[in-house]
Write a protein that binds this DNA or RNA. Structure first.
Lengths: 189, 189
DNA sequence: GTCTATAGGTGGATAGAC
DNA sequence: GTCTATCCACCTATAGAC
């Protein structure tokens, strides 16, 4: 097993920094110190911070979608899929991180255009998957809800992101779990 | 009516900046430019940025609690109180702002200790008021929910903050309204 | 209270040697 | 690919005149 290449290691460290401190809350100096290289080396891999940011979101979405495919492969029950979906958020929070794109949503006003677009692309993909699960659950009567699946998907994402953000400020996992459980329970038939 | 004093005008401008760009997304130079004074003048009123941040949260909480008292004075119906509570968020969002403390929750990892404490104080006060409304609604059977009022209050705050944050990224008020309506409807008896 | 001037630090970014 | 050295813009903050 080769060591992960430098670009990937940079992304790993930058990802954690954005998730804990925000895109405006870290600098190349932070990454350089953590990797024991100079700032100049980092600019070889990612010329501008905006490049780093965009690549960060793209990789995050790719990994997230892979996790969703993993859920699809592991279970066919709609309620169980939603539980595992919420469990992904829970794992991120347990690591004291915020969702990358939830964090960027707060900083939206200061982001380069490309990052704004990539961020929305992430939420769109997210909600498309949820709409599929919700439609399936409604069809086989394992889920019940009023309104469109798209509206419910938006509510779910918003509720989980918001609960995550606040629970992190209280360093209280239980707070997140209780909200997640309540939210999923509201879809029980 | 005297013009608002300088400290208040600084707070007004800083408040909007934090709500749109985050605490790490603006500088004294931004305020100075907007007020047509020098940065040095600002330091006379708020020696350090951390002082400004803390006073910002304290004033925000005071104003928010006053708005909640206004709701209590205007109506005695629990469901109507919740609708007006959500309408406050909606008004903030319509102005292209995020909730001040929702924004700070994202930046939590980088905030001075005093600001962290003040921020949680805001959410605590917020939830205390909601718990009162929820208890009243349960008692007079105008609201129905399972679990404790405290859990529901936390879910409400999280759902509204999260929906707000994401809707702002899409510049889509409808997105927020639909989530808020759904969330309140889930408490109907 | 507000100004000019400035200190001392950090930000992102580049040139050019190795 | 990584380094040293450096640029310049910007940051928070202070001293001292007015």
């Amino acid at each position: 097993m080769a060591a992960p290449d430098t670009s990937q290691r940079i992304l790993d460290i930058a990802e954690r920094l954005v998730q804990t401190r925000g895109f405006n809350g870290f600098s190349y100096a932070d990454i350089a110190q953590s990797m024991k290289v100079t700032k100049a080396s980092l600019h070889y891999h990612f010329p501008a911070k905006a490049d780093l940011g965009a690549r960060l979101i793209q990789r995050y979405e790719r990994n997230f979608l892979a996790a969703l495919q993993g859920i699809d492969a592991a279970t066919s029950s709609a309620p169980e899929k939603l539980r595992r979906y919420a469990a992904i958020y829970e794992d991120v929070l347990r690591d004291n991180r915020m969702c990358l794109c939830g964090m960027l949503a707060a900083e939206f006003g200061t982001l380069p255009k490309a990052m704004k677009d990539d961020m929305r692309h992430y939420f769109d993909a997210n909600e498309r998957w949820l709409v599929g699960v919700l439609a399936q659950g409604k069809k086989d009567k394992t889920l019940r809800f009023s309104g469109s699946a798209a509206e419910v998907a938006q509510s779910l994402v918003g509720a989980l992101e918001g609960a995550m953000m606040i629970a992190r400020s209280y360093a209280d996992m239980g707070r997140f779990k209780s909200v997640a459980d309540r939210t999923l329970a509201s879809l029980a038939p």
